[in-house]
C-alpha cells in the first residue's frame, strides 16, 4: 500500500510539472481547450439537429440519446485526460526517447500518462457533464437508490474501460509504429459510435466496437436499464451492474498486452 501511495505522489508531481510546462504556452493551451470543447459540442449539435427532423433514433428519444451522449463522452473525456497519452509511445519509439522511460524506477504505464498529461483535454468533459446533468433531469427516470448509484459507477467504470482500450490500441505501436491511425479509429471511433444507441449499427460494428472492445458497457448497457428505453438487442437488466467487473478484466488484459509490447520492444529495439 505504501508503494501505491508513493507512486501516486510521484504521479502528482509529474503531472504538476507538465501543467507548469504547458502553462508557459498559455495561448496555445487556451486555444486547444476551446477547440476540444467545441469539437465535442458539435457531436451534441448533430444529435440536436437529428432530433429536429425525426422524433427518435432507434426508438430512443432526444433526452435518452442525450444521456447516452453524456455518459459516453464523459467517460471518453476522462479517459482521454488521464490515459490517452499512452499513444505518444509511437512518437517516443520513433524518436528513440522511449528509453528514458525504461530507465526510471516507475512502470512505463504510469510514467507516460503522467509525463505527457495535457490539462487542455479536460475540454471534452465540459459539454459532456452539462449534457449529462440536463439530460438526466429531462429523461423521466424512475429514480431508485440503485439507479442513483448506477450513474457514478458507470462513469468510473466507463473511464477505466476507455483507458484500457487506449492502452491496448496504443500497444499496437510496439509492433507496428505506423499504426497510430488504425488505433485512433478504434478509440475515437468508439467515442463517437457510442454517442448513439448501439442497436442502430449492424452486427459487425456492434461486435467489434461493443463487445470485443467492450465499449457497450461504457454507456449503452447501463443506460438501457437506467432509462428503461427500447431494448431491441434484449440486454438483460442485470448486465447493467457488470461494468465494474468488465473494467477490471479490461485492465488485466491491457496490462498483459502492454507488457508483451514492452518485451517485444526490448527484443527488437525498434
Amino acid at each position: 500500500m505504501g508503494d501505491v501511495r508513493s507512486m501516486l505522489t510521484t504521479y502528482r508531481h509529474l503531472v504538476g510539472a507538465k501543467i507548469r510546462s504547458d502553462w508557459q504556452y498559455r495561448t496555445s493551451f487556451v486555444r486547444y481547450l476551446l477547440s476540444q470543447t467545441v469539437v465535442t459540442a458539435l457531436d451534441l449539435a448533430v444529435i440536436l439537429v437529428l432530433s429536429e427532423v425525426v422524433p427518435s433514433l432507434g426508438g430512443w428519444n432526444l433526452s435518452q440519446v442525450a444521456v447516452l451522449y453524456g455518459l459516453t463522452t464523459l467517460s471518453f473525456g476522462l479517459g482521454d485526460l488521464f490515459v490517452s497519452q499512452v499513444e505518444t509511445v509511437a512518437t517516443h519509439i520513433q524518436l528513440g526517447t522511449f528509453d528514458r522511460f525504461l530507465l526510471r524506477p516507475l512502470p512505463t504505464i504510469v510514467q507516460l500518462p503522467a509525463s505527457e498529461f495535457a490539462l487542455r483535454r479536460v475540454g471534452r468533459s465540459i459539454p459532456a457533464i452539462i449534457t449529462l446533468v440536463v439530460a438526466l433531469s429531462m429523461a423521466e427516470i424512475d429514480w431508485t437508490v440503485d439507479r442513483l448509484a448506477l450513474v457514478p459507477m458507470t462513469v468510473v467504470a466507463g473511464t477505466i474501460i476507455f483507458g484500457a482500450v487506449w492502452v491496448v490500441t496504443a500497444s499496437i505501436s510496439f509492433w507496428a509504429v505506423g499504426a497510430r491511425e488504425v488505433a485512433n479509429s478504434f478509440t475515437y471511433g468508439g467515442g463517437f459510435a457510442h454517442q448513439h444507441p448501439l442497436h442502430v449499427y449492424s452486427r459487425w460494428v456492434r461486435t467489434l466496437l461493443g463487445w470485443i472492445l467492450p465499449m457497450a458497457f461504457i454507456a449503452y448497457v447501463p443506460a438501457v436499464h437506467l432509462l428503461e428505453a427500447p431494448n431491441p438487442l434484449g440486454i438483460p437488466s442485470w448486465l447493467a451492474l457488470t461494468p465494474p467487473l468488465v473494467a477490471i478484466a479490461a485492465v488485466v488484459v491491457a496490462r498483459t498486452v502492454w507488457r508483451a509490447g514492452i518485451r517485444n520492444h526490448q527484443s527488437t529495439g525498434t
Binding site: L50, L57, G58, G189, F192, H196, P197, V200, Y201, V205
Partner: peptide, 8 residues
Amino acid sequence: LRAYILIG
C-alpha cells in the same frame, strides 16, 4: 458509423 446513424 455515420452511414448506420443516417440509416437509423
